[in-house]
Write a protein that binds this DNA or RNA. Structure first.
Length: 399
DNA sequence: AAATGAGGCAACCGCCCCGTG
DNA sequence: GCACGGGGCGGTTGCCTCATT
């Protein structure tokens, strides 16, 4: 037997709340000593309207209080940081608005849900990102998405798959160009390949062929997946770091020279300094384990804004560094530009959102640099620029 | 100036989960 | 184990505002 809706009871008001009703509810809640106290006293929300002198159902009171009248609610536009937090959490959690809200002090699930539905969704679509899957909208990626959804990867596999994806892009490009299935025609070994071969003893080319034959052409996934699609789908060389502290953010877009030209891959954000956002069962090369932390920055160093980028020989790439220049946030100077970009062309723009001003500089990684197999680590203004080609470094932080 | 449409957002609805008797 | 009530949650609705015609 279904339960009757709480508002079905006779004489109860529905619809928008008046100032007078708000006042009564606030007065009652204050009398109770704040949120939750009435519950601690054993008073249910159902009793609240009676005690507060309201002709509303308890549920309506609860919603009005939690979504609007609560004193700790933050009003006003969402900041750039909040936006990014929502996007990142939505990527990990989906439509778990309450869970997302719990990470945004002063914001309610309803508010976040509305903000997502009315603004963020559109924004992502404009960027060419599917707001449901957070993956680039393209046939190629849809195909890979389907594969990713049914396969599972160990931490090492994850890194491997990034690499394999770059190979697949090459393959697909070749197919498009009628060149056949030559997996290594234009991609010489880079430092990353060498690292994998030498440290892990893996034959990358063979692995790529194998992967492509079995999982792409053969569509024969045999493992279960614990890694979100988008992590697989972001092209090898995609930026993986993201600044949660709103000082500098960076996005890596990677495109293949022809088949993917013009395709926006959008952002690939991953909070690598706060484990609560970490994707389960995934260890990324730049994980913030203490060992790495001390190794790179000493006991008290920071690495929150470190943005490692692996650049495949098969790709050209852009790095977009977005720097928040909102007065309140501009505590640090402009981002360091890694010397890898010193000879690269770049452009810059300044964007102002409702609450944030940020400048965006785009740097094209020189193809020769990419082909030289440089493993780039892009640092923000907070830290020293760092470059690391050192296999021992990667070995260190990946183990 | 009036009509219309679009977008934003507060509020509601219905389902689900969990605790309790 | 079952029924019930309370609370929480996500999806949806409908009102309000503002821009456009």
């Amino acid at each position: 037997m279904g339960r009757s809706a709480c508002c079905d009871e006779n004489g109860l008001k529905k619809g928008p709340w008046t100032a007078e009703e708000d006042e009564k509810l606030v007065e009652y809640m204050e009398r109770c000593g704040g949120d939750g106290n009435h519950q601690r006293r054993g008073i249910s929300w159902r009793q609240v309207p009676k005690l507060a002198g309201l002709k509303r159902c308890g549920k309506s009171c609860r919603l009005r209080w939690t979504n609007y009248l609560r004193p700790d609610i933050k009003r006003g536009n969402f900041s750039h940081q909040e936006e990014q937090t929502i996007i990142n959490l939505h990527k990990l959690l989906g439509n778990k608005w309450s869970e997302i809200a719990s990470n945004l002090p002063g914001r309610t699930d309803n508010e976040i849900k509305n903000f997502w539905n009315t603004q963020l969704k559109k924004k992502l679509l404009q960027m060419g990102i599917d707001p449901v899957t957070h993956t680039p909208i393209s046939a190629t990626h849809d195909h890979l998405s389907a594969i990713a959804a049914s396969t599972s990867f160990s931490p090492c596999d994850w890194a491997l798959l990034q690499y394999l994806n770059s190979k697949i892009q090459v393959l697909q490009n070749n197919i498009l160009q009628g060149q056949g299935l030559l997996i290594s025609n234009n991609a010489g070994p880079n430092a990353y390949d060498q690292y994998r071969s030498c440290v892990l003893g893996m034959d990358m080319e063979a692995a790529a062929v194998n992967y492509y034959n079995n999982y792409v052409l053969g569509s024969s996934p045999s493992r279960s997946c614990s890694v979100p699609d988008q992590q697989l789908l972001y092209h090898h060389g995609h930026g993986l770091g993201y600044d949660y502290d709103d000082l500098t953010s960076a996005t890596m877009m990677n495109r293949h020279s022809s088949c993917l030209q013009g395709t926006s891959f959008g952002t690939s954000e991953y909070d690598h300094h706060d484990s609560k956002f970490a994707i389960p069962n995934m260890k990324v090369p730049f994980s913030t384990d203490d060992h790495h932390h001390k190794l790179q920055y000493g006991e008290s160093g920071h690495q929150d804004h470190q943005l490692p980028v692996l650049v495949s020989a098969a790709t050209s790439a852009y790095v977009i560094i977005t720097h928040d220049t909102t007065a309140a946030n501009d505590q640090f100077a402009t981002p360091n530009i890694p010397h890898q970009f010193s000879n690269s062309t770049h452009s810059s723009t300044t964007t102002t959102t409702t609450s944030t001003t940020y400048s965006t500089a785009t740097f094209e990684i020189d193809h020769e640099v990419a082909c030289a197999g440089r493993d780039l680590i892009v640092m923000d203004d907070y830290h020293q620029e760092a470059t690391n080609n050192d296999q021992s470094y990667w070995k260190h932080i990946m183990e």
